[in-house]
Design a protein around this nucleic acid. Structure first.
Lengths: 217, 217, 217, 217
DNA sequence: CATGAATGAGGCTTCATTCAT
DNA sequence: TATGAATGAAGCCTCATTCAT
């Protein structure tokens, strides 16, 4: 997974663009090599600028990583905001939510890499970031609403804690992508596309199977 | 999370003991600091020996990490072997399995750290290790057997793929521990004990809820 | 010893003022941090201007240091010019001269710092400065005159070389201030005020004691 | 003043020798270039070893500088110890002491450079060094004894404070060497040998002239 | 078996300086 | 006149690793 080439234009004298190019380059390299494995030189090179310029915009490696994390969280929060689940019937809404979660990590592999790395470091960057803390996920509220609607219609079981369900969905959505490398060694997984499709179907089944109302009587 | 002190005895001239002390120190430091964050000096210091001695027993940092991984996988495989689920009724067996998986990662935090790190590196060490590949998990077979028994008794739904279920259980068991740092920043999680207990109950419910046979008719 | 705040007014578009503000800031920082220890950024910050502006007025760090040196020498030469010793009797004149020298370095600590620094660098900046070379000290002539008058009155010994005496006075005046830091570690010197007063009295005594005419016979 | 070549033997595997070679190289470079002007690479090169080896023996640049200072102070204290002034008549003893002080700094130019540098840095290294603090100069006691003897014989004036006199001797001994660079620009000093000889004679004259007993009556 | 000495490569960061506006 | 953007050249230090005993 080589970092994609972000260098588009020769160094412009445009602060916002330069900063963003550095940020994007950093995201790419951090996701590929990890926090410690990343070399500032690699970021500079990918951003098409001098290594010293990184320090013009960011205080250091950790602050740059923090900025990348903030951007990462902002992106997924934005994607979550765009999901429009309120108009769907509860079961369909829940299915869409699970699928979205799964697809997002599948399609944004940097996301998982960065979050994992941050977890390996005890979330110290996140803790230091006011930005990131503010970006609380809106999904828990959405889940709560869907659950209520589903219970009202008799589709869902009662007494499901939305936070627990959120974490369950995240678990199912993230783990496969996050651990595919070692899983592939232990099992002989088929090609990626088949894998993902099978898995996607399965986790929807798990969540909906769990949620379906117990037979009355 | 400071590495626990592995140094038990003053350096004795005993090959097997020295090697094991180094391996244990390495596990502790790798789990705490990650592969790149780990310093050979830190391992030597914790092992109570000279840095050069590490190279006496292991070819280098990566080989040492590989050896640690092998030991890690061997340990969980051994624990899995000890699980005796065959005599239990299917539902109880499945519950015990889920709980075992959850408890194992909760009680062996190094396990997750190491596996995650390895995943961040594309499982390159695992791929290079014949030992590790041989240690295929026996759990899939166990799961298959439990599923068959459960279906036979009318307790479980049909057509559940044991590999998918294994991954699902692993997802639910691992994710919470693995991502607790960032989750704590986003949500205001209560104290660790409460967290784990609530979560443990929930994931059992999810797995069993998913598996329970659909009401006939 | 933090640099004193030279920034008085918001950056005005006034060439002479900007140049002087930079020069004053530079003097302060150079005196505090030394030539190599000084950062152009620190000067700019203290001058309340952009770093690039420094290069608008001065060719570079060394030239700026040279300019500071020139200003420094100009200031002490001006102070020396104001001394009016010609009307005093020789002994009083000499005492006033010694005291002036001592007080000047005590009251202008930057002076010593800059001169010392320049000496550490082999006076290369001074050598490159026509300005500084022109500013030959008038004190040697003054000393010569006082010595002549003193000898004529029978107050002073004969055959004292005015240049040597000048250097001796400078030695006594400068050394204590210049080396106070290390002296304080070796001896347990009392508080600054007492120190200086005692020392001032002593060096006057030394110079006058040395100069007094030998008893006839 | 290029650093003298200390590299005598190819890198030996002898800790004490290596350490000393590094220390000597450091003294040379620090004295030539100053603390900030010194490059660790220059020291390593002069010591004939790898730059990393410096960090094997010394924690960093400042600690190395401190060690050099300690060695420097130890050397002059050793030289002072060897002075045997107690058997000389007071005037001769005092003359010898002044000459020794003057000669020492003339013959050990690093001494002055290092002390000056340390003073420019507020003696922070010295303060951090227990070694250096312990090495209090024995000269003050010697001076006190000489003064007492001189007064007893009627050679010296009374009530001279030995600490003040010590500082005065140091001033006269150090200043000329320490400030020769700038003095040379201001005055047109003759060749070094003549300079030093003239100055040496003069300062002896100053100290003895000051000390001689006032004519009775 | 075990160790302290030694090293080469490279990482993060700083800094004086120049460029373009 | 004044500025923020941009850069090349180091500098200090770290670290995995090898050597010699």
């Amino acid at each position: 997974m080589a970092p994609t080439d972000v260098k588009e234009a020769p160094a412009t004298r445009n602060a916002a663009k330069s900063r963003q190019r550095i940020l994007d380059a950093a995201e790419s390299v951090f996701a590929t090599k990890g926090l410690e494995g990343t070399r500032m030189a690699a970021i500079a090179s990918l951003a098409g600028c001098n290594q010293a310029l990184l320090y013009h915009y960011f205080a250091g490696k950790d602050e740059l990583f923090t900025a990348v994390l903030e951007q990462t969280y902002a992106k997924i929060r934005a994607a979550e905001q765009k999901l429009d689940l309120t108009d769907l019937p509860p079961i369909a809404a829940m299915q869409k939510l699970v699928e979205f979660s799964f697809d997002y990590v599948r399609d944004n592999p940097s996301f998982i890499k960065l979050i994992n790395d941050e977890n390996m470091h005890g979330a110290e960057h996140l803790k230091a970031s006011d930005d990131a803390r503010r970006l609380n996920t809106p999904l828990v509220d959405t889940i709560a609403a869907i659950l209520r609607a589903g219970v009202a219609r008799g589709d869902f079981r009662v007494s499901v804690d939305p936070v627990q369900l959120y974490i369950t969905i995240a678990s199912l959505a993230y783990f496969f992508t996050s651990n595919r490398a070692t899983l592939s060694v232990v099992f002989d997984l088929p090609d990626a596309n088949t894998c993902f499709a099978t898995r996607r179907t399965h986790i929807v089944e798990v969540v909906l199977g769990y949620l379906r109302a117990t037979p009355a009587g």
